[in-house]
Computed example of a mutant assay.
Amino acid sequence: MHKNKELIVNPYYDFDINLLDCKFLGEGHNGIVYLLPDGNVIKICFNIKSFIGEYIILEKVNGNKYFPRIYDIGENYMIREYVDGDMLPKYIRKHGFNDELGKRIIELLKEFKVLNFTKIDLRCKDIFVQPNGNLKVIDPKKFYTKDRDFPRHLSKGMYKLKILDPFLEVLKKEEPNLFDAWTPKIMNYIKELKY
């Protein structure tokens, strides 16, 4: 296992988990997620390299309001806080986009810089809008290992959801410097998508 496993001194769980007692939440390329009876989740990972990368990120940001807390890890699983709410695309389809949501997304991206992430980007489906309106990131990937200085994947998702222009308007109003830095890159990327 990864050398950081020793950092988990007091395991959160000291008993076997029967997945038949758990609610299936979803499955992606790298793992499958179940809701545990106590309200936390277990993610069983298929890809050990991705698992280790995700664990390192969550361990470094543990306690940050934008990320689920991590409680325990094993050879191919992690137990972490359950993130309630809707994925950003589903939330937008139900409630639409507004300036307040745009501001929260901008604050999330600014937090990435505070956390010294080298990748200032994520996919729309990795942002959950919680019932109280706060944002949480699930499935963090390569935030410390990939260089990207603008939200490329996020822009692509927003473009497909038809909210990129309203988001850029909020960005221009709230963070003109980021607007000036990101917009040319975003527009070039979107132009490539069209062809």
Rank of each mutant, 00 (worst) to 15 (best):
N4H: 14
E6A: 12
L7E: 13
I8Q: 10
I8Y: 11
V9I: 14
P11A: 15
D16G: 06
I17F: 07
L19N: 13
L19I: 15
L20M: 14
D21Y: 00
K23I: 14
F24R: 04
F24T: 07
L25D: 01
G26Y: 01
G26T: 08
E27V: 06
E27W: 06
G28Q: 01
N30A: 11
N30D: 14
V33T: 04
Y34G: 02
Y34Q: 10
D38R: 08
D38T: 05
I42G: 11
K43T: 06
C45A: 15
S50D: 12
I52F: 02
I52E: 11
Y55S: 07
Y55N: 04
I57A: 06
E59Y: 14
K60Q: 05
V61M: 03
V61R: 08
N62P: 02
N62H: 03
K65L: 00
F67L: 02
F67V: 06
P68S: 08
Y71W: 11
D72I: 03
D72P: 01
Y77Q: 10
M78F: 08
D84P: 00
G85Q: 03
P89G: 10
G96N: 10
F97D: 01
G102R: 11
R104S: 05
L108T: 13
K110L: 01
E111D: 14
E111V: 11
K113R: 13
F117V: 03
T118V: 08
I120P: 07
D121E: 03
D121P: 04
R123P: 01
K125H: 12
K125L: 08
D126V: 12
V129R: 04
V129G: 09
V137C: 08
I138V: 14
D139G: 13
P140H: 02
Y144F: 09
K146N: 15
K146F: 15
D147M: 11
F150I: 12
H153Q: 13
H153S: 14
S155P: 00
G157I: 09
G157H: 05
M158K: 07
Y159N: 09
Y159R: 06
I163Y: 02
I163Q: 00
F167D: 14
F167S: 13
L168N: 00
K173L: 03
E174G: 00
N177V: 10
N177R: 09
A181C: 01
P184G: 01
M187Y: 12
Y189C: 15
